[in-house]
Design a protein around this nucleic acid. Sequence first.
RNA 1: GCCCGAGUGGCGGAACUGGUAUACGCGCACGACUUAAAAUCGUGUCCUGUAAGGGAUGUGGGUUCGAUUCCCACCUCGGGCACCA
Length: 962
Amino acid sequence: MKEYDHKKIEKKWQAIWEKKRTYQAKDFSKKPKYFSLIEFPYPSGDGLHVGHPRPYIGMDIISRKKRMEGFNVLYPIGWDAFGLPTENYAIKTGQDPRVVTKKNSNTFRRQIKSLGISFDWSREINTTDPKYYKWTQWIFLQFLKKGLAYKAKIAINWCPKDKIGLANEEVIGGYCERCGTPVEKREQEQWMLAITKYADRLDKDLDKVDYLPQIKLAQRNWIGRSEGAEIEFKIVSPIPGIGENVKVFTTRPDTIFGATYLVLAPEHELVQKFKAQISNWNEVLQYIAANRNRTDIERTAENKTKTGVELKGIKAINSATGEEIPIWIADYVLPHYGTGAIMAVPAHDERDFEFAKKYNLEIKQVIMPDNLDDRNPPHPDKKNTNRNVVHIILRDPKKKTVLVMFLKGEKWKGNNPINFIIGGIEEGEKELETAIREIKEETGYSNVKFVKKIPFETQARFFAAHKDVNRTVHVHTLVFDLVSPEKVEIIEDEYFTKDSHEFKWIPYEQVEDIVNIPDDKASWKYFLNDGYAFTGEGILINSGKFDGMDSEKTKKEIIKFVGGKEKTTFKLRDWVFSRQRYWGEPIPVVFCPACAKASAGKENAGWIPVPEKDLPVELPKVKNYQPTDSGKSPLANIAKWVNIKCPKCQGKAKRETDTMPNWAGSSWYYLRYTDPKNKKYFADKKNLKYWTPVDWYNGGNEHTTLHLLYSRFWHKFLFDLKLVPTTEPYKKRTSHGMILGEGGVKMSKSLGNVINPDEIVKTYGADTLRIYEMFMGPFSQSVAWSTESIIGARRFLERAWNLQTKVSKTAFDTTLNKTIKKVTEDIKEMKFNTAISTLMIFINEVGKSDSISQDAYEKFLKLLSPFAPHIAEEIWFNLGHKDSIHLSSWPKWDENLIKDEEIKIAVQINGKVRAEIMIQVDDNEEIIKQKTLANEAVLRYLAGRDAKKIIYVKNRLINIVL
RNA sequence: GCCCGAGUGGCGGAACUGGUAUACGCGCACGACUUAAAAUCGUGUCCUGUAAGGGAUGUGGGUUCGAUUCCCACCUCGGGCACCA
């Protein structure tokens, strides 16, 4: 037998597979189809690093297994090649990005091919190929036709020195990434895609797909559905002027009685409308200006303190109470979310609370928490009673202690309440009177001083054991200071005796831990922190006819009461689809001034689509790739290209010089794979029908909100045009973890810790690299690279290779069948690391014997083949086969052969393992108990004691409790 | 600040649905083969203790006969998002 020579073997089989088209997907087949997809790479100038292939290998294993299970598998690849890095390289070196892209993708292709991944290379696509981007442009025209593409003024990041718009990624801490100049905001006309029109469906249809739960959650958070109401508030002014209403959006209409002021975004149109009525207009203007010029640096430096200015001279009317409330502008209210205006409810919203504290605005509680005391919950069969009560925080200000009451007695069943001084408010009595009376009667202290009432009331429900009734109480908390310690005599009654209570002075810092009823915990916290916003649901107070009702259940009624309407809003914003850059798909429209005049006032007036027959609008060659001084794409400099006849009126017109973002080409690429060479359609309907949806899409976590959402949006749009057969593009989505550099830091050129797979392939072979990358850790998590550890993967393959000298009889039935089962199931769940360790265990087992039967060896090779395709194929042919192992059938296991007859189980005493015994599988409990109690070690531990309890877990362990 | 993920030997990691923690691999130590080295093969390898035993899954509590796994609080690391009414 020859030595294992990975260099020879791997090159040889790669050539043969390519020649025989082993991995080509066939359009239409009797076999069931399977479409597996990875995110196609961006061919950067740095070439491949070892992190790139991890997902490709993972999905390769899935795809290869699916092929062996009889599926017609489509596993394609291409290049997502438009975008910034190549363009910046072009600007720096003056090289044509087309040339650079070609060079880079050639390198990538060579490197990926050297790994033996079963891509169908005959379907390779490239987003920068005019034959491809013709269809990207075509889809854009469909958006335009349906009114989902529109122009809008949008603030962009602008570097005043480079005179260039910057991507968020190029802004580092508020400064331009390349020249360090502070970045400014600048308004620019941009093409937008109305993804928000699909927000609802993008959210709801997540129910239909099989994505990892974190991925669904991330998408849902990004879309940010929120149910609430739009409510109008009237604006009034002593100076007669325009009568206006302002619409606010709120998710908490139930708190409207507590709306003590109104806040508009500084950009809100009504601010300008009331210019004449606003008496501090200069101050307002200053605030607006400061806010507009504020760059990201200043915002971060500002440390989140909220700022704002009152619009003096105008007021709003709270639609629920009819009271006049002040109006403010503040930048914590965003112009593009909801209606750009809010009703502020400081008692029940954290931001409003912070703002109200800072500017001394009224804070009015309208919801109190409904505290169910779960230590002493109401009894279902006891009488319910209602009471108003005062709780008294009696402080000794000199000693910094508080008087706390410990209830004693058997009736509480160990759940004795520990609380402040409590007293029921009698008919006709004031809170303050009750408090003073109770202090005197219960504690004897007669010289106390009222400090304040805590403006936070609560409701409590509990079983009052001392009176044998259920109570629902409305709690008012008052604070008193002890002036001097003299006492009068305590008044005892039926319930209040010296034996039923004990009072202790407790230091401030211990109060929170000692007091054990929720109301006192809450009011103490409120007292200590000088208030906080209670944002939960509860019982309405100070809310007119709604008092006493449940806040959650009353929302709809309150909306009706104030004449508002229910409304759902989303965080998701429309997609800015223009870039003033060279290296992207030209947006296929022209601007015609004559047509603009004719259709003035209409949306997109003057913007005429390029006729579909004239697509693609090819990207012309330019001399200079730098954007123009005015911030336009370098395309604007090519008069010959820009000036064109209007396709509609034949008048003088100019081409749009904006290009598309690089998310465009990747929003539909998976569709092109089904029919990559079609000249008439982006893909034939028959092909789409057969191949879509993608059965399994694996990609990076960083793409879960942008790319994944954008492509779902495009797909749904195409579905609405009846151009694709499914509502969702991807049935299943998983994600992989990054490969980090040695020591767990990110691999990057600047750190000099990038590992090039070429080196590894040369030294150890592609199969070794594949095994190592799949073995190093769980596929979904980041793992640090370790060149030192690769050798283990190589040794494993060599052992598998060396078995060729041992082929004869030994069958390894049990081990083999266990291995088949485990590997089959692990691959399905992407547990590649444990699948490989199972294969290693098998090899170790066989290594102990002199021989292995050909049948067992072949089954093992089949299991190995998705992971290490070259070596498996080579041995397979050495064993006499004439057809590829990769087209053979996946082995099945026999459940009967897996079962052991005799097994070892653990014997625990009080939960600790003290011995092991051998049993026959499925022995009954009696036999096992006998065996256990006969065991020497067990007897030693029992030392004559009897077992209180014996727990037997079938075929696993027996636990004796003493 | 909010959301998500993670924390287990010297290192990467394993552990089904709550049931013998540390599989598999790296490294290390010893042994065999060799003139020698490398490679290979074999044995050992959580900590502590002579042993019996005791202690370990980020920390502290809880539930349970039994917790890496479930609950509560906290700490650390990684990723994402920035005031979303």
